[in-house]
């Protein structure tokens, strides 16, 4: 059997094996050596850093966690770094979730970042987790008219209206910045459509999305979306920039996205290689039949 014929009828399990090696190998390399591939931030990541940096100290940030553990591999590094910058900038962080498990993700992020590295911040005053609310876009429409009606209590069960952090908050317009980390529906697209467009410019929005969603979010950037982090690459760029700003030796949890770029690089190269080989086979096969 010729090589060409063998490739034409290649069992797809060989491709699966190649993929496993391309991803597992770099993870082991990066894990054993502690190295990460180099990173070059693009404009989109710089913009995100600047938008948060430009807010005055003590501004309220609405942080929407619209993802669940299934997408945490891609989105958690973004949420971690975004919350880190907000906390370091002394912004007041109000976490909400429109995904049932988003509330847990917020809780974990708070534990990882705020409780671990910013222990002086007080729950209910400097940050709060209002947890999950069912209702998708319906909730977004409610926050436009009455914020605490949509999120009546925090995860500790206290009435939101009594929390110091929410004093003076009537609607979502009282938050100068909306940060959204989202894995699908409802997510960034809906926040732009229902909240940012309706707020007539009083709410700026930063979105961190999965790779799948990013192409759909580009039409809104840089207009209605002040910043956009696309997929793990966006997270890695932003993480790299933020680590530069914060200085010092970053803790391993603040290198998560950059570490994940190692398997990403080899995975992409494998895919490009597979597409090239697939096309070569077809090209050569076609020439063969013609001859």
């Amino acid at each position: 059997m010729s090589l060409l014929a063998r490739l034409q009828s290649l069992d797809r399990r060989w491709i699966f094996l190649l993929m496993a090696i391309a991803v597992a190998g770099p993870i082991l390399w990066s894990g054993l050596t502690g190295k990460t591939p180099p990173e070059q931030p693009t404009d989109a990541a710089r913009r995100v850093l600047k938008v948060i940096d430009d807010l005055p100290e003590g501004s309220r940030v609405l942080f929407a966690f619209d993802y669940d553990p299934a997408s945490a591999g891609e989105l958690q590094p973004m949420a971690t770094s975004l919350m880190r910058q907000c906390a370091a900038r002394k912004l007041r962080i109000v976490c909400i979730a429109l995904w049932p498990l988003g509330g847990n993700m917020a809780q974990e992020t708070i534990a990882h970042v705020i409780r671990a590295d910013f222990p002086s911040l007080r729950e209910g005053v400097d940050f709060v987790n209002l947890g999950f609310q069912a209702g998708n876009e319906g909730v977004m429409k409610v926050v436009l008219t009455d914020f605490t009606k949509a999120f009546p209590k925090d995860t500790r069960g206290q009435a939101a209206a009594d929390l110091p952090i929410l004093q003076g908050v009537r609607t979502v317009r009282d938050f100068p910045l909306l940060v959204n980390v989202s894995a699908g529906y409802p997510g960034s697209k809906e926040w732009v459509q229902y909240v940012v467009s309706a707020s007539e410019g009083s709410v700026k929005m930063i979105a961190g999305c999965t790779g799948v969603q990013t192409p759909q979010m580009y039409p809104y950037y840089p207009g209605q979306l002040a910043g956009l982090l696309g997929a793990i690459k966006g997270a890695a760029e932003y993480e790299n920039l933020l680590n530069g700003v914060m200085g010092g030796d970053p803790a391993p949890k603040y290198l998560e996205a950059q570490r994940r770029m190692a398997p990403q690089l080899f995975g992409h190269l494998l895919l490009v290689g597979l597409i090239v080989v697939g096309n070569l086979i077809q090209f050569m096969g076609r020439r063969g039949t013609r001859a």
Partner: peptide, 23 residues
């Protein structure tokens, strides 16, 4: 559920090899 989700990386690879042809 997250491993089921992760299987996609493999399917993307086999689709890249098989289906993405410059026809």
């Amino acid at each position: 559920t997250s491993t089921m989700f992760a299987l996609l990386a493999f399917y993307v690879a086999s689709a890249a090899f098989r289906a993405f042809r410059a026809k």
